[in-house]
Amino acid sequence: MPRLETFDITIRTGERGLDGTPRFSINGFPLEFDTTDGSATPGGVLEATGNPGSYPHSLVLVGPEASPWDIEEVEITYYMEGSEPYTVYLGPITLETDADLSLLYDQPLQTFDV
């Protein structure tokens, strides 16, 4: 995967939220988001931007430690070096207290009937 300069993420939280602001981790190294707006409290929407500036083999949203976190939807826009930005939409998932969420997804393939 090419160098990931920046990514924007929007997280829509369901019934059970997260206290505080989540972090992300790239290649095993935890980092803070550079900007955040909103919250991950129940029903909340958190918008954040990360600037890893690195070649990712692993990119994860660090999950909760105290209680599960219900995520309804995640939108991630990747800004890769030398290529057009692309956006991936993730569906609902519950992060248990031992789980992190992978944020590394390839650009979805556009398909058509032939």
Binding site: S58, V60, G63, I71, E73, V74, T87, V88, Y89, L90, G91, P92, I93, L95, D98, A99, D100, L101, S102, Y105, P108, Q110, T111, F112, D113, V114
Partner: peptide, 21 residues
Amino acid sequence: PERRVVRAPVLDPGEEEFESP
């Protein structure tokens, strides 16, 4: 401490209907 990484379902961005033979 052991943590696991999970993946969420990727939502279909919608397909382009080109032709339906």
